[in-house]
């Protein structure tokens, strides 16, 4: 699905004294089945842009179209519905729920969809198998190492079989070996036909051969946009 951004702006604390314009007129096209990386200094607005693309928040103005559909004006109720079918999220701090088992954490995003339990379990187990986590399926997530937690987070992002994966600073909590491993997993996902969108200021990520395109941001605007081969 092609993602198209047209003059996107995001203003925080509108109309208050601390009004702040985080994104100032970005137009972009993100092609399907590519790995795109947003890079830029801290505070340049990468996360903000990513959350708008991933239907987590709405732009103050501008149009975002996802395939055929204009999503920028949709109420939250419908944004959520699109989000859970289309996007999978991998967060910097993994954001697993403490006290639940690995399996339960993975299945969480599927609960509101009312997927039949059997099918859901099967799929969750096959994901765990694929990422080498079968052994851990019943362990509480507190026990996991950083790398394992990362892979659990990927499984969770995959549970609703989304077309687009969004990862915000996925390697910030990993050492360089694990970061490279992560890029390997991203490559697998890319090979299996997913669109991947990553933000990072980690050279291991944006210099990796897996990345198809790097978009550099500064102060809420696009600085440089170059394909990598």
């Amino acid at each position: 699905m092609l993602i198209e951004l047209n003059d996107i702006r995001k203003v925080f604390n509108q109309g208050k004294h601390n009004e702040f314009s985080a994104i100032r007129g970005i137009s972009l096209q993100i092609e399907p089945n590519k790995v795109t990386c947003l890079k830029g200094a801290s505070g340049s607005g990468k996360t903000t842009l990513l959350s708008m693309i991933g239907c987590l928040s709405r732009p103050t103005s501008g149009r975002i179209t996802l395939g055929e559909q204009n999503i920028s004006g949709l109420p939250e109720r419908f944004l959520t519905d699109i989000r859970r079918h289309t996007f999978g999220f991998i967060f910097q701090k993994f954001n697993l729920i403490q006290g639940l088992s690995v399996l339960e954490n993975i299945m969480l995003p599927a609960y509101p969809l009312g997927t039949p339990h059997e099918a859901l379990m099967d799929y969750a187990h096959s994901l765990l198998g694929h990422f080498g986590l079968s052994r851990l399926s019943t362990s509480p997530v507190e026990w996991l190492s950083g790398g394992e937690a990362q892979r659990v987070a990927i499984c969770r992002a995959m549970i609703n079989d989304p077309e687009i994966l969004i990862a915000d600073e996925p390697t910030a909590n990993l050492d360089s070996k694990l970061s490279r491993e992560f890029m390997g997993l991203v490559d697998d996902l890319h090979q299996s036909g997913k669109t991947v969108l990553i933000t990072s200021h980690d050279p291991i990520v944006f210099d990796s051969p897996v990345i198809n395109r790097v978009v550099e941001m500064c102060d809420g605007q696009v600085l440089k946009d170059e394909p990598c081969y």
């Binding site: 509108q14 732009p59 103050t60 920028s72 004006g73 109420p75 939250e76």
Partner: peptide, 13 residues
Amino acid sequence: INSGSEQQLVLER
């Protein structure tokens, strides 16, 4: 409904 303002979000919620 067409506004992306924070106020509209508050109303929606």
